[in-house]
Amino acid sequence: MTAQILSAIFTIIIGVGGCVVYYWGANKILDAVFPSRGVSGAAAVDNLRRQGLIRPWLFVGPAMLIVTVYLVYPVIETLRLSFMDRGGENFVGFANYSWAFGDREFRNSIFNNLLWLAVVPAACTFFGLIIAVLTDKIWWGNIAKSLVFLPLAISFVGASVIWKFVYEYRAEGQTQIGILNAAVQYLGGNPQVWISTPFWNNFFLMVILIWIQTGFAMVILSSALRGIPEETIEAAVIDGANPFQIFWKIMVPQIWGSIAVVWTTITILVLKVFDIVLTMTNGQWNSQVLANLMFDWMFRGGGDFGRGAAIAVIIMLAVVPIMIWNIRQANREGGGGH
């Protein structure tokens, strides 16, 4: 273990040092090859121009290289592999896709993913908005916000253990050590095996993601609410609007943009949800989702890369509209700004 700590520290120094040496060294070399100081005026101007042509690429080069290897190339390669057989050697046309839509487990995953998409972003935004509005009105609001925000720092696996303990089941009549079943028994109901009851277990898994992501929605929406001009609310109060009318007709329309951001961010997250399902049920009891199914096929029976890639492409297709919208939005901003 000591050896590992030492080698970790060593590699950290090498890795970080390597980066520093590259940027520093590459600039030194550029300055040496095309000197701009200590040469005649015309040559200096010429060399400065050449430096200006090359230096940007020294700066963005490493980032471009890594992004190309780790994101651009894989996206294209995954698309290609989705039309290939399990080893990625022979072209099979749309066979992987037609397999997918005929597969019971895949259709179950699509159904569950749609369920997640319908519930989680809406629930997070709803609770986030309510908590943001309520905490604004009380003196201990910031403490409350911190506590609701806290699960955002917890890993999906950690959160799964936390909630598995909440859902823990003991047979009827025994002392329940899971707080949910204890509450149910206290209220006179029968304890349930929450995570292995088909269909309903989806919702108990969603609760975990909602629990984690509500803090995110709350922070974004809380900041948006602060940006609402006081006058609009004061005017509504003078006009005799009640708190509900002010909330729905004055406040919500003014933070529509932020609500959209929260909604799309959580939508993308939901499409990728993997850890929660893997650790809670591993797709048993009809709780499978696409991301976990994809991971499964990467290794199932030695790995079927064709089917895995096809499932990945289907997840990607769902994200494309959001991607296009984002790029358009950014371009519009860039055009108006600097």
């Binding site: 994101l71 995954t78 994809m294 991971f295 890639a309 984002n326």
Partner: peptide
């Protein structure tokens, strides 16, 4: 900006 939303799943197999 486009790559911001690309799911990790697209990268794993390659």
């Amino acid at each position: 900006i486009g790559l911001l939303v690309v799911p990790l799943q697209m990268s794993l197999i390659p």
